[in-house]
């Protein structure tokens, strides 16, 4: 009992000493009060090695903790940046698409249809993969004034003609369809011939006079004969001339003026009602 009492008193005394010491040294730790006295410097000098070691250990712990925190932050940031990159890629793709479309439309707008035709811009909405070079469907129909046999063009040249019309869509027979035949003129010599489809990406020029000086690179334009296509629309360029022995006419392989495999927008040349 006595021992317990004396122990408690000793504990109280030690606590008081510690408390007073804490009060005194609190000031040394405060930022406004950095200076220490002569004795303080001596004590600090003795404690310095231990202090440095403890400081280094504490720094290592703090660095490790920060590194751990940074790993978590980096993972979060990485995920966020990945999502951002993905969104930006989508945006770039969208803008590229919009830019490309704007360029195509700008060229289409530049196309001047001959009188009395007016043009209706149409978007290609369907294409049969098995008959890629024969037909396609556009999003304009009779409600837009489109009628059968209306010529379909792009700024580069002839695409084909409308052969089936629905209220809001129309099917177009491409010049590359074997059922298609277009009267043409060789632009340089004005000799007449007929371009027919081959169901491939090439056309065939037929019925051109053997005496015509046809050369590779000659441009073919619509002749205006037959009443379907107006005169002067580019149809294609001669790539190879074929002159068979004993034949009355010469033939040629023709590359279409329009890249028919990459059509997205076209112009339908509609005639006013009075002109039909």
């Amino acid at each position: 009992m006595i021992l317990a009492g004396s122990g408690r008193r000793a504990g109280l005394f030690v606590a008081l000493v510690v408390l007073a010491g804490a009060l005194l040294t609190l000031q040394l730790r405060s930022p406004e009060r950095r200076a220490v006295g002569l004795v303080g410097r001596a004590v600090l000098g003795l404690l310095l090695p231990a202090q440095v070691s403890l400081g280094r250990a504490a720094d290592a712990v703090v660095r490790s903790w920060r590194a751990l925190n940074e790993i978590g932050q980096l993972r979060t940031e990485n995920a966020r940046l990945r999502a951002e990159v993905e969104a930006l890629r989508r945006e770039v793709a969208r803008l590229q698409e919009a830019s490309s479309e704007a360029e195509r439309l700008r060229r289409l707008v530049g196309f001047r249809a001959p009188d009395p035709y007016a043009t209706v811009a149409a978007r290609v909405v369907a294409r049969d993969p098995s008959r890629w070079y024969t037909t396609l469907t556009v999003d304009r129909g009779s409600r837009d004034g489109v009628t059968r046999n209306d010529p379909v063009v792009t700024a580069d040249g002839l695409v084909g003609r409308v052969f089936e019309v629905y209220p809001s869509t129309a099917r177009v027979l491409l010049v590359t369809d074997p059922r298609s035949a277009v009267g043409v003129l060789v632009q340089s010599s004005r000799d007449a011939g007929v371009v027919e489809g081959t169901a491939t990406e090439k056309l065939r020029l037929r019925y051109l006079s053997r005496s015509s000086p046809l050369r590779e690179g000659d441009v073919l334009v619509t002749s205006g004969l037959g009443g379907v296509f107006p005169r002067g629309i580019r149809v294609g360029v001669v790539r190879a001339v074929v002159r068979s022995v004993g034949a009355l006419f010469q033939e040629a392989e023709v590359e279409p003026a329009t890249d028919l495999s990459r059509l997205e927008e076209v112009l339908v040349m509609v005639r006013p009602t009075a002109a039909r």
């Binding site: 008193r9 005394f13 408390l19 010491g21 009060l23 005194l24 040294t25």
Partner: peptide, 28 residues
């Protein structure tokens, strides 16, 4: 001794608080 130390602690603390010097100096 411990009771006297407590008394000294309190007296010194009061003196420190009243004096405005280094807190803990007179306490200790």
């Amino acid at each position: 001794p411990e009771g006297a130390a407590l008394l000294g602690f309190l007296a010194g603390l009061l003196q420190d608080l009243a004096g405005g010097g280094a807190l803990g100096l007179f306490t200790m």
